[in-house]
């Protein structure tokens, strides 16, 4: 039975279309001409986009989120790669323990993680600085980075490495010319996936911002509570577009199969 009954198919499609619905609503509301949120809009205008681009607070938040996401993605991917490479090649015995430690943040409710992070960052005196946000994002993203890289590295045939090194390649050369190309899609998945997570993270980040720094999602959150100006819809649409581009890029360069693989490690 490779086919579904038409009723099930319709049900599946209807439910599937329900998923992006609120995003389209935000999209529609961003072209609203009146001074408060209305759906469907009575008149159309681009005034909220003009406001979003001219208000320096939004530009700053977008840039902050982008550069933090880039730094976090590169750092955590490098960190996970080194750890996975070392354990898989030299110390497979500790692999299980390392995974247990790396995946343990997943079992932590985000609210508790936020309080734990702010307790730690406050004692280090870095709350309200990019350092606090970056460190917290590294803790949040490490499982999502380690998994694709670990899966990719596991598929490398040790004979290839032995062959390269017997022929006189240094370890670095073998890494660069053999292992990295084989793990390409795992590494790219880690980079883009963790970048997206960092760019959109809000529950932990909102404890760590300060007067000097805030990220885009946290600023949207603060503004929703203060006043519900439609400029938020325009800003939200921009944030959706950035995430969407990153996902399309991920599909292009690495494929999406990672997301639907059953992990057997």
């Amino acid at each position: 039975m490779r086919k579904m009954t038409p009723t099930m198919k319709m049900l599946g499609i209807a439910l599937l279309l329900f998923l992006p619905a609120p995003i389209f609503i935000v999209f529609g509301a961003s072209f609203n001409g009146s001074g408060y949120i209305q759906f469907p809009p009575e008149s159309w205008s681009l005034r909220w986009y003009v406001e979003a681009f001219t208000d320096p607070r939004w530009g700053r938040a977008v840039l902050t989120s982008l550069w933090i996401a880039a730094v976090v993605a590169v750092l955590i991917t490098a960190i996970s790669f080194l750890a996975a490479y070392f354990t898989l090649r030299y110390a497979p015995k500790i692999s299980g323990w390392l995974e247990l430690a790396i995946f343990s943040p997943l079992f932590f409710p985000h609210a508790s993680m936020g309080v734990a992070a702010v307790a730690l960052m406050a004692s280090m005196g870095v709350v309200g600085t990019p350092i606090a946000i970056i460190l917290a994002h590294l803790m949040v993203t490490i499982p999502f980075s380690y998994r694709p890289i670990h899966v990719a590295l596991k598929s490398v045939d040790p004979d290839l490495i032995r062959a390269a090194e017997v022929m006189g390649a240094s370890e670095l050369r073998a890494l660069w010319d053999i292992i990295l190309p084989i793990c390409r899609s795992g590494i790219l998945t880690s980079l883009l996936f963790t970048g997206i997570i960092s760019f959109d993270e809000v529950t932990v980040t909102m404890f760590l911002i300060g007067p000097e720094i805030t990220t885009l999602p946290v600023q949207i959150f603060t503004f929703i509570q203060d006043d519900a100006s439609p400029v938020l819809a325009a800003i939200s649409t921009l944030s959706v577009i950035i995430t969407f581009i990153a996902i399309l890029l991920l599909e292009r360069v690495a494929g999406l199969s990672f997301f639907v693989q059953r992990q057997s490690s």
Partner: peptide, 20 residues
């Protein structure tokens, strides 16, 4: 992709959609 986009778009944005 239709499933992944709503999953990865920021929580705040999706919740904002529901407020509207």
């Amino acid at each position: 992709i239709v499933v992944l986009v709503p999953w990865l778009v920021s929580l705040v944005v999706r919740t904002y959609g529901w407020i509207i």
